Amino acid sequence: MTIASAKKASELRGKDVAALEKEVNELLKAHFALRMQKATQQLNNTATLRVARRDIARAKTILAQKKEGAAK
């Protein structure tokens, strides 16, 4: 997945818990890479950081909802 294109919530809701956890880890790694690029002034489009943060939040929210639903 490229960070520039945001994941839609409907795409994430179709995944199971394990796939969502993997997705969150991948997004966190990508966000870290973007932060390092920004620190070394290699990042041209800093808006990708915002998109990455929001993708992470979206994935974590859906993951928490699925875990809560499974606990009931």
Rank of each mutant, 00 (worst) to 15 (best):
K66P: 01
A52K: 07
E21Q: 15
A18G: 07
S10K: 08
L12F: 06
Q42V: 04
E11Y: 11
R50S: 12
K60N: 05
V24C: 08
S10A: 13
A9T: 02
V24E: 00
T61F: 14
V51N: 02
F32G: 13
V51E: 06
R13V: 08
K15R: 15
Q42S: 05
D16A: 09
A4L: 08
A30L: 08
E68S: 07
V24H: 03
K7S: 02
A39L: 14
I3H: 09
A70G: 03
L28D: 03
E21H: 00
K7F: 14
E23V: 04
M1N: 05
I56M: 04
K66C: 01
A9I: 07
A39W: 08
A64T: 02
L20F: 00
N25K: 14
N25Y: 02
N44A: 13
L63H: 01
R35S: 08
A33D: 12
Q42F: 08
E23R: 11
V17N: 13
L28M: 09
N25T: 13
G69W: 12
K15L: 15
T2S: 13
N25S: 15
A57E: 12
N44Y: 11
A4Y: 10
L12E: 06
R53C: 07
A18S: 13
K38S: 08
R35Y: 08
L43H: 12
T40F: 11
K8Q: 11
E68W: 15
V51W: 10
L63F: 09
G69H: 12
A19P: 03
L27G: 00
K72Y: 14
V51S: 02
A47W: 10
L20D: 03
V17T: 14
L49P: 04
L63W: 09
S10W: 09
N44T: 13
K66Y: 07
D16Q: 11
Q37P: 04
A71R: 15
F32Q: 06
V17R: 14
K29S: 15
N45E: 13
T61Y: 15
T48Q: 11
M1Y: 11
K8F: 10
E23D: 11
A4W: 09
A52H: 05
K22H: 04
K29Y: 11
L12V: 05
M1K: 03
A9M: 09
D16H: 03
K60G: 05
I62H: 08
G14A: 04
N45V: 10
R54G: 02
N45A: 10
T46D: 07
I3W: 05
R35N: 06
A71V: 07
E26K: 08
A30Q: 14
K8C: 08
K72V: 14
L34N: 05
K60M: 10
N44V: 12
R35T: 08
